[in-house]
Design a protein around this nucleic acid. Structure first.
Lengths: 198, 198
DNA sequence: GTTAGCATGTAAGGAGTTACATGATTTT
DNA sequence: AAAATCATGTAACTCCTTACATGCTAAC
């Protein structure tokens, strides 16, 4: 029961590097504008993270971009995923999945769905939906206590929250149905997708 | 420009103690189940927070509940807001307001709207709406780039996100309109509400 | 008499931020 | 030559969590 640590940043970096080798500055831009629907990370966390991942052998660094695409500028350090890192990413994507329904992690996981199999996707979607159901029940219980005149704002907040949760559940229902349909039309165990164009 | 620190917990505790004196255990329950739409704080952060607030004179502690309501159990330590603490809360509620449109803080601020004047409420609501507008523009810009076949999930996430943001903006528009109507029907400078039943 | 719930705390650590320091290159 | 942008990094700090330690009372 050793509380699995989340490390959203690590997951996001692994996911982006899976698609293409990148240097730190570019990585940060993509974190902000691609996974940026969720949050922006600072260099103060990104660079130490890369350093640690390097130490663990999940990424390798090569100074400067290779031959072509000569940009000039300060010498970049390009990071790329190693085989170990690839395995690690796959592990995070599958093992951690069920616990990963909290707002932040769900977004990142979802954005990386293209790298996973349908089974993993369904696990994550179900996990998220279950949590939202719990949350909705909780909100409704609170809404059941009619608000005092001074509690108007709290009440209104719960109401809006409950509505949002309902809508997200509905959205998830649709996604789950689609995944199941896809899984049926392409039966058998889900093959891990082949690597991206490197 | 000294980056105002947020300290959600402090604000939430001040807000709850404004309504009634409470001991730590009860405070935590209310944090979870009353402001709990947002997050649950652990004792490991709550008690040190109370200690610090005590040191700063924002709260005072009295051992055991007064005379009545003898519960037995372990001796409780009841905290209540001091005058300084009251001023501090008022300061946080007004000064910090504009910067406080990030998801977590907005919820807590909103839940404490009952303690503020209409001017503060409008500032916070407007701040929140402005941020959401920015975010929506950002999301739409990304949606404008038609997704590659592999980016389906990212695209779908943006789409759902944009819809949620739109709905919240609409919600805020309604609230803002209501506040303005209220302000007109009761003109003049907003009087700070009288204290709660102590 | 042991488990469950109430109640208060501390120590260590995790995941990130801000502010700072540095330096190259391109644009104005 | 100044300013903006690209690029990498470190030190100190923040706010919170987990895991632990303690003890009291009520219920089984």
């Amino acid at each position: 029961m050793s509380a699995r640590r989340t490390r959203v940043l690590e997951l996001a970096v692994l996911g982006l590097l899976y698609e293409a080798p990148l240097h730190g500055y570019e990585l940060r831009k993509r974190l902000t504008f691609q996974l940026g629907a969720f949050r922006a990370f600072s260099y103060g966390s990104l660079y130490p993270c890369l350093k640690e991942m390097l130490r663990q052998g999940h990424v390798s660094q090569t100074p400067q971009a290779e031959g072509s695409a000569r940009g000039g500028r300060r010498s970049r350090i390009v990071y790329r995923l190693t085989d170990t890192g690839h395995e690690h990413l796959h592990g995070l994507l599958t093992e951690v999945a069920p616990a990963t329904s909290d707002d932040e992690c769900f977004g990142v996981h979802f954005a990386l769905f293209g790298h996973t199999g349908p089974d993993v996707r369904l696990r994550i979607l179900h996990g998220r939906r279950d949590r939202l159901h719990t949350r909705l029940a909780d909100l409704r219980a609170r809404l059941a206590h009619a608000p005092g005149p001074a509690d108007d704002y709290t009440f209104e907040l719960y109401r809006h929250d409950a509505e949002s949760v309902e809508r997200e559940i509905h959205w998830l229902d649709g996604l789950i149905a689609r995944e199941q349909r896809d899984a049926r039309s392409r039966p058998g165990p889900a093959p891990p997708r082949p690597g991206p164009p490197v």
